[in-house]
Design a protein around this nucleic acid. Structure first.
Lengths: 139, 139
DNA sequence: CTAGGGATTCCAGTTACTGTAAGGTCAAGG
DNA sequence: CCTTGACCTTACAGTAACTGGAATCCCTAG
């Protein structure tokens, strides 16, 4: 199979597949004309990578997961550990985003959003302590 | 004020402040010895930037917000628009992360996480259709 | 023989910094 | 006067994971 077919099958752009070869995630053979040839195992690997990436695993995590996948005697605990770490990071990101969301929503609701220049959003950013409280701004 | 003092006041690393000068977000004067000198307006700007960045605005958004802040006749609607767009992006990111989180949590719960090699997480990544359903994997 | 649709490589750009190296400046202390 | 240490400077490279573009080659069909 040539790279275009694999791209269609795996859903990954050809460019990305070449990149994955660059960083040694896949090692397709070459035809005499220089074209990459992907066998079923290569395509399977790339599909695996596409799924893992869609679940937010980093490339390095993917490398680890792929190695675990190919090691038929791995302990499932190792896979679960990688996943658990990733879950923690996702949770942290969600929490960060939710905090930003809450603040921005509040400010946006307080902002008239009309032709007038008065704007609570800019006031908060500029450090104006609109509620005269003593809390620090979120860092 | 020298860069170190500003770093302490604004909470931004000196390196970041230099970077912000590079991309023309601030334009501190220079002393004869080449050191940057920051006046109160510069420090205020940097603090503004630190807050906006902490709320997840991109650098380009920050540039826009700063310009709006300094344009005393801006319409608050413009600020609200930038904020609204950012809120939408945050919501999209949260939704993505929550979807990943749900899938990973499910898989993680199904995985024994012991010494045995059987692992639903790897099975899902490898495309094994464990539930014999016909739904596509999330892309 | 030419046109098209692939394929190849290589280089640059993206975002927002961060790290490192090599070196200039300044104030205090011996 | 010299050193030491804290501070400042620049410039270049690296990060994550691609993406875009240019120049060129290959293959097939008409």
């Amino acid at each position: 199979m040539n790279i275009g077919d694999v791209a269609r099958q795996s859903g990954l752009p050809a460019k990305t597949i070449r990149y994955y070869e660059d960083i040694s995630l896949v090692k397709p053979k070459r035809e005499t004309n220089g074209y990459r040839v992907f066998n079923d195992a290569d395509v399977h690997k790339l599909t695996f990578l596409a799924r893992a990436r869609a679940l937010g695993f980093t490339i390095e995590d993917c490398r680890t997961l792929l190695a675990l996948y190919e090691d038929k005697s791995r302990a499932s605990a190792e896979v679960k550990k990688v996943t658990g770490k990733h879950l923690n990071e996702i949770e942290a990101k969600i929490a960060d985003l939710q905090a930003m969301h809450a603040t921005l929503t509040r400010l946006s609701e307080e902002c008239a959003g009309d032709h007038r220049p008065d704007c609570p959003i800019l006031e908060e950013l500029s450090g104006k302590d609109r509620h005269s409280n003593t809390h620090d701004a979120k860092q």
